[in-house]
Amino acid sequence: MTRSRTRTGTRSRTRIRAALVAAVATALLAAPGIGTAEAVPSPDHHCVFEGIDLNAFLGVSERLIGPPPCREAFVGERWVRTLPGWGTATGPDGAVYPAGYTPSRPAPMDDFLAKLQGVRIVQDIGTRQEWSVTVGPEIVRRVDTVDDQIIANFASHPLRPLSAGPHTSTVFMRLSAEHCDGLGDNPDDHCLPAGEFQYTGNTPVTFFPRRR
Rank of each mutant, 00 (worst) to 15 (best):
S169D: 09
M109Q: 02
A177G: 13
R7M: 09
A19K: 01
L28D: 15
S163E: 15
E50K: 05
G94A: 00
W79L: 04
A18R: 06
V171C: 07
P193Q: 00
I52A: 12
S4N: 09
V119G: 08
V140N: 13
V48T: 15
A177V: 08
R78V: 00
T200V: 08
P209K: 03
P166V: 06
F208H: 09
E72F: 01
I34R: 15
T6N: 14
N202V: 01
A27R: 14
N202C: 01
A89K: 00
R210D: 00
T90F: 04
G94M: 00
T10H: 03
I65V: 14
L116N: 08
V24P: 02
Q198E: 10
I151L: 06
L20R: 14
T82Q: 11
G165P: 06
A194Q: 06
T82L: 09
G51C: 14
Q129S: 15
P92S: 14
H190L: 07
T82D: 07
R3D: 08
I52F: 09
A18G: 04
A194K: 11
R141W: 13
N153F: 04
S176W: 03
P108N: 02
R17Y: 03
P187D: 06
V21P: 00
R174P: 01
A56K: 07
H45P: 14
Y97F: 15
L58V: 14
T26P: 00
D110N: 11
A177K: 12
R211Y: 01
T168S: 15
T206A: 01
A152N: 02
D93T: 12
L29M: 14
A37G: 08
Q198F: 03
R142A: 15
H46L: 10
S104I: 05
S42T: 13
V146M: 12
G201C: 06
V80Y: 11
G85N: 01
C191N: 10
R212I: 03
A155I: 07
P106V: 10
T102C: 04
R105H: 13
S61W: 02
S104H: 11
R212D: 04
R7T: 02
C70F: 12
R141T: 14
A30D: 14
A27C: 12
T90H: 01
R13T: 01
V135C: 14
V140Q: 11
A99E: 14
P32A: 08
E178P: 07
R141E: 10
G66F: 11
C180A: 09
I52T: 12
D188G: 11
T203A: 10
P69Y: 02
A99N: 12
R128S: 15
C180E: 06
V75I: 05
P209M: 03
D110S: 12
A177T: 11
G35Q: 14
P106K: 12
T6L: 08
V60H: 07
Q198P: 05
R11M: 05
T8G: 13
L83R: 01
C191M: 13
D53M: 11
V40T: 09
R212L: 02
G136W: 11
D189I: 04
